[in-house]
Design a protein around this nucleic acid. Structure first.
Lengths: 214, 214
DNA sequence: TCCGAAATGTTGTAATTACAACATACTTTC
DNA sequence: GAAAGTATGTTGTAATTACAACATTTCGGA
C-alpha cells in the first residue's frame, strides 16, 4: 500500500512513518479500487470504516425515488469520507457514495480505535475531530450555495466560494455541467442557459469547467 | 450555575459531578441570557467557545444581502452549537445565531482543552467527536429536506424525518410557518398553500405546529 | 370581552423553473 | 479522419414558485 498520500493526510499528518504503519495495522487498513461510476456505498448500508481517497474522487449523493440526484459533496484525493457513519455505527447511511472517476479507497476500521494506547488515541481523536469539524463547514457551505432562490444566485454563491478558496478570479471547478446542476439543485439545461446569460451580461467567462469572474 | 442540564448533556454525560465542576472551571464556563430575537453571534465573528443551550432554543441561520433567511438548524435545550468555529478558530463564522425564544447559553472555552490532563482530554475529545459527528448528520438531513424540487416533496421529506425520529405518525414540530418555510427554503405563503392542499388530498392533518401523517 | 398584534391562510399575477426535444460541440475509438 | 458517443447549449411550453395584497384566525393583554 502506498502510504505517502496517507502520511500527508489530515488524519496521519504529524505521525512518523513507523507510527503510520502501526496505525494502519491496528485499524486493519484495506485497499480497494473502483471504476468510474461504480457505487462504493448504498443508502441503507451500515459501516464502521472510515474511508480515505488515495486516488481519484468520489461523490456523496442522495438519489430519491423519482430519480433526482443531489450531490452533497465531492471528496477528492487525500480526503476522507464516511466518518459520520463510521463513528456512529448505529446510523445507517442516508447517502450513496459513487466513484466520480477511477479511484482507490482505503478503509480504516474505527471499531479498533478503542484498543489503541491512550497517547496514540488522544492524538488520533484530535485529528478525527478536526476532520469531522471541517466536514461540517463543507456541509454548511453547500447549504449556502443552494440557499439563493434563483439559479443565478446559486451559481454566484458557488463560484464566489471557489474563487475565495483558490484566491483567484480564474479557476477550474471539479464538476461537469450535470454535476454542478446536481450540486446546486437546479436543472442542467437551466444551468447552461443561465451561464450563457451571465456571459452575455459580462459577469463571467467560462469554457467547460474553467471559469473567470469579471 | 445550574449544572444539571450540563451533566446530562452529550459532552459531560459519563463524568461525575466533581469532574463536571472541574471541567467547567478549566474551560472557563460563562453563562449569558438572551431575549427572543436577540443575535447571539453574527456572520464574520471569530470565536473559540463551544456553546451550550441551558434553556430555550436558538436558530443557526444565513441571512443574505437580499434579506432572504435560511435556517440551517434549530438547536434546543441540552444541545451544543458553534463547535465547528470553536474548534477551528481560524474560520470566521458564516452564519448568524439567533435566540429563537428567551434562552440561556453557557460558553466553554475550547482553547483550554489542551491544558487538561491526558485521561480527561481523551474522554472529552471522544465526546466532542460524537457531538460534531451527530451535527454532521443533522446538516446532511437538511440537505435531504431541501433536495426535492417541489414544495410538497420538501414538506414530506421533512415530516417523514420528524415522524421517524419521534416514532409516531402524530407529532409537534419546533417551527412556526415562517421558520419552516425558511428551513425548507420556500415561500411562507406557498408553504401554507401547499399544506392546505395536502390536507385536502388527505395526506396529512395539521393545526399550527401539530402534524399527523395519514 | 374587546382590541391590536402576530400568525396563518387564500388568491391572483408575474416571474422563474422543469422538462422535453433538439442542435451543436467536443472526445474517443477505430 | 469518420463515426459514435458524450457533454453542453438553445429553445418553447407547461408547471411551479415568488411576491404582493388581502382575509382570517389566534392569542395576549387592557
Amino acid at each position: 500500500m502506498d502510504i505517502s498520500v496517507l502520511s500527508g493526510s489530515a488524519l496521519f499528518n504529524g505521525f512518523d512513518e513507523t507510527e503510520v504503519n502501526n496505525l494502519l495495522g491496528s485499524l486493519n487498513a484495506r485497499e480497494k479500487r473502483f471504476r468510474k461510476g461504480a457505487m462504493i456505498f448504498h443508502s441503507g448500508d451500515v459501516i464502521s470504516t472510515l474511508c480515505f481517497v488515495i486516488t481519484g474522487s468520489v461523490t456523496i449523493e442522495s438519489n430519491d425515488m423519482w430519480g433526482n440526484r443531489t450531490i452533497l459533496n465531492l471528496v477528492s484525493k487525500g480526503q476522507f469520507f464516511a466518518e459520520s457513519y463510521a463513528l456512529l455505527p448505529d446510523e445507517p447511511m442516508l447517502v450513496d457514495v459513487c466513484a466520480n472517476e477511477d479511484c482507490t479507497i482505503v478503509y480504516l476500521d474505527m471499531k479498533s480505535v478503542g484498543r489503541l494506547d491512550e497517547s496514540m488515541r488522544v492524538r488520533l481523536l484530535a485529528k478525527l475531530l478536526t476532520i469531522t469539524t471541517r466536514k461540517n463547514l463543507h456541509l454548511s457551505s453547500r447549504s449556502f450555495h443552494t440557499a439563493p432562490r434563483q439559479v443565478r444566485g446559486r451559481i454566484m454563491a458557488y463560484l464566489n466560494t471557489v474563487s475565495v478558496q483558490k484566491n483567484s478570479r480564474e479557476f477550474d471547478i471539479p464538476f461537469d455541467r450535470q454535476q454542478l446542476a446536481d450540486y446546486l439543485n437546479v436543472e442542467r439545461s437551466v444551468l447552461s442557459n443561465e451561464l450563457s446569460k451571465m456571459q452575455k451580461d459580462g459577469l463571467i467567462r467560462c469554457r467547460k469547467n474553467h471559469f473567470e469572474i469579471m
